[in-house]
């Protein structure tokens, strides 16, 4: 049922999950809205962290391109690299959908391991971003995530799905202003990244 899948869940908790991409480097953009399913619930989240590393934590990649002309040649000369490396992304859960209704709070259960992860279509993004209640979850993303970057990236990503991008961003900005009362420097940092 989920077409165009990006990857699948390999680690999961109530507040978020980690997914591995099927293709090396085919990571979704930072801040984009993705979803996974745990029927009948669809779990929505934003990409808050992504990276590529060795499949074995103990084995670090080594530099190989000394005698090669381009980066592509390294990969063609060492086809095993496609199997030894993997791209992963971490998703912060910001809502879910049940019986056709979108809720901007955490789902009752975390995502299941091996559940497929998909990028949301513009229509889904539009439906999800009708309310800004998810901003509160984003703002509390935790110490590992650069919150200002995440919030602004998410809103920028969402704005591309809107007909009137500017008024969407203004409305979001106003919501943020209310959330960040008394923290003008943080607010300013986010707002300058929204343009």
């Amino acid at each position: 049922m989920l077409k165009d899948k990006l990857g699948e869940v390999i680690e999961s908790s109530t507040t978020g999950f980690t997914a591995e991409c099927y293709e090396l480097y085919s990571l979704p953009p930072f801040g984009s809205l993705v979803k996974t399913a745990d029927p009948p619930v669809e779990i929505y989240g934003v990409v808050c962290q992504a990276g590529t590393s060795s499949i074995e934590p103990g084995r670090r990649p080594i530099a190989r391109g000394k005698d090669e002309e381009s980066e592509a040649e390294i990969y063609s000369a060492n086809p095993q690299l496609w199997k030894l490396l993997r791209s992963e992304f971490r998703v912060l859960v910001i809502g879910h959908k049940q019986d056709g209704t979108v809720y901007h709070y955490l789902p009752p259960k975390p995502a299941r391991i091996h559940a497929f992860v998909n990028l949301c279509s513009p229509e889904e993004v539009k439906q999800f971003s009708r309310s800004f209640d998810f901003l509160d979850l984003l703002m509390n993303a935790g110490p590992q995530v650069p919150v200002e970057e995440l919030v602004s990236a998410t809103l920028r990503q969402m704005s591309t799905a809107q007909e009137d991008q500017r008024s969407f961003l203004v409305a979001a900005g106003k919501e943020l202003t209310a959330l960040l009362g008394g923290e003008f420097t943080r607010l300013k940092a986010i707002l300058t990244r929204l343009k």
Partner: peptide
């Protein structure tokens, strides 16, 4: 203003986006 910092270091007034966001909120 909701935050004294705004009056201490006002945002760039030539930035209409910032002004529009702050107007009526902060």
């Amino acid at each position: 203003v909701t935050d004294e910092d705004i009056s201490m270091s006002p945002p760039d007034a030539s930035d209409p986006f910032m002004v529009e966001v702050l107007d009526g909120t902060a």
